[in-house]
Design a protein around this nucleic acid. Structure first.
Lengths: 232, 232
DNA sequence: ACCTGAACACCGTTCAAGT
DNA sequence: ACCTGAACACCGTTCAAGT
C-alpha cells in the first residue's frame, strides 16, 4: 500500500483547448444526458480542475451554445444549394441531428429565445429560407413560410427525439413501435366526452414511420405555400 | 433594540394547500422569472419553511407541471366549440397566455418531451385538433395537420414572448418596434455571401404586428390542408 | 395531519496562489 | 499564459423532531 501516489488523479500535461472542451461536453451530453454536463464531471474527464475550464470558456451558457453551434453547423454543412428535394434534405439533416443528440432541441429553443440573432438561429433560418425561396411562391410569403417551417421542424424533431429516448428507457428489447402502442393506448383510454378528437386519431400516428410522418408535415406546409392565398 | 422578537419571520397559522402553493409559484414565475422559483423563495412568500411544501407537492417538477397545467387550462377554457374562426381563437388563446407568462413555452415543451400523454399535451392537441376536424379536409390528414399546427403555435408564440421580454429588458421607454429594428438591423449586417436569404427578408418581420404575423402562419398551414394533395 | 429547520449532497463560479 | 483546488453562495431534497 504505497501511501502517496494513490488517490490523486493524474493531470494532463498538454494545455487544454476550447475545442477539446466542447468535444468533451458533447460526448458527455450524448452519453449521459443533459443533467450530466457538470463542470466537475467535465474537468474530471479532461483530467483538470473545474477552474481550468473557465480560462477557455466564459461559463456554462457559452459552453452549451458552443456545443449547439458545433452540432447544428455540421448537420447543415451539406446541401446548401437548392435542388427540388432540397427542403427535405435540410429538414432531415436537422431531424437526424436532433435524434442523435436529444439535448439539442431544448438548446436550440433556448438559443432562439435568448439570442435570436445568434449564429445557430440565423443558420437554421437561412438554410430553410433558401429552400423556400427556390420554390414557386411569392416573395411576400417567404418570411411567414420560413418561420412556420422552422418552428415545425424543431418542434416535431424534438418530439421524435424525446419519444426515441423514452422508448430506449423502456429497455433494450422494447422497440419504438411497442412504445408508440403505449402512447396510442393511453389516448384510447381518454374520456370520449372530453377528448373525442384525440381518441379518433389515436392510431394515425402508427401508420407510417417517423421520418415519413415528419416529412408529411413539411409537405403540408409547402402545399399551402404554393397553393396561393388561403381559401378562408 | 429588543433582542428576541426580531429576525424570525412570522409563520402562518392556517394550513397550506396545494392550490395556494401553485398560485404563489405562478406569481413568482410571472414577476421574477423562471430562475426565481426556488423552494426557499417560495416558502418565504408563503410564510413557512421549505420542508412544508413537500407535504403537498412531490418536488419541483410536479410543481412546474401543476403551474403549467393551471395556466394552459384557463387559456383554453373558452371556445371549445368549432365556429369558422375557431382556430384563430384557440391559437390566440395560447399566444396570449404565453405572452403573459414567458416561462410557459419552455414548460409546455418540457411536458411534451417528458410526458406526451399528460394533461397539458393532450388538452392542446385536442383543442387544436377539433378545429382541424371542423374544417373541410380529409380525415387522413388530421393527425399531421394538428401536429404541424401545434408545433408552429408553441414555437412562434414562444418566440414572440421571448422578444417581448427582451424588449422590456431594454428599458421602459424602448417599445417593441424599436427592438424589432435592432433585430432587422443585425440581419442586414450579415455577410451577403453567407446569408443572402436572411438579408433579403430582414424587413418582412416589421410590416405587420405580431398577432397578424402569427395568424398568417396559421393560415398558411390551413391553406395547405384544404388545398388538397401537395403539388410537388 | 401537518409543519420546522437543520443537514446533506450537490451545483456554477471565483480567485489567490502556484508554475 | 495557463492551471490548481479550496472556498463561496447557492440549489433541491430529506428527515428527525416537534405540535
Amino acid at each position: 500500500m504505497t501511501p502517496q501516489t494513490r488517490k490523486k488523479p493524474e493531470r494532463r500535461t498538454d494545455p487544454l483547448s476550447r475545442e477539446q472542451i466542447v468535444d468533451a461536453a458533447i460526448e458527455l451530453l450524448d452519453t449521459a444526458g443533459e443533467g450530466a454536463l457538470t463542470f466537475r464531471a467535465l474537468s474530471e474527464r479532461l483530467a483538470t480542475g473545474p477552474g481550468a475550464i473557465y480560462w477557455h470558456v466564459a461559463g456554462k451558457g457559452e459552453l452549451l451554445a458552443a456545443a449547439t453551434d458545433r452540432v447544428v453547423s455540421s448537420a447543415l454543412a451539406t446541401g446548401t444549394a437548392g435542388p427540388p428535394g432540397g427542403m427535405h434534405d435540410v429538414a432531415l439533416g436537422l431531424f437526424d441531428a436532433i435524434e442523435s443528440h436529444p439535448w439539442l432541441a431544448p438548446q436550440i429553443a433556448a438559443q432562439l429565445s435568448h439570442d435570436p440573432t445568434g449564429p445557430v438561429t440565423t443558420r437554421i433560418f437561412e438554410d430553410i429560407g433558401r429552400q423556400v425561396a427556390a420554390l414557386d411562391a411569392p416573395a411576400s410569403s417567404w418570411f411567414t413560410a420560413t418561420s412556420a417551417l422552422m418552428h415545425y421542424v424543431l418542434g416535431a424533431a424534438g418530439q421524435n427525439a424525446a419519444n426515441r429516448a423514452r422508448a430506449r428507457g423502456l429497455g433494450p428489447d422494447a422497440d419504438r413501435s411497442a412504445y408508440m402502442d403505449t402512447v396510442a393506448g393511453a389516448w384510447k383510454q381518454l374520456s370520449p366526452e372530453d377528448y373525442p378528437f384525440t381518441r379518433a386519431v389515436a392510431d394515425q400516428g402508427l401508420d407510417h414511420d417517423d421520418r415519413a410522418q415528419f416529412l408529411a408535415g413539411i409537405d403540408l406546409i409547402l402545399a399551402g405555400l404554393t397553393a396561393g392565398p388561403p381559401a378562408a
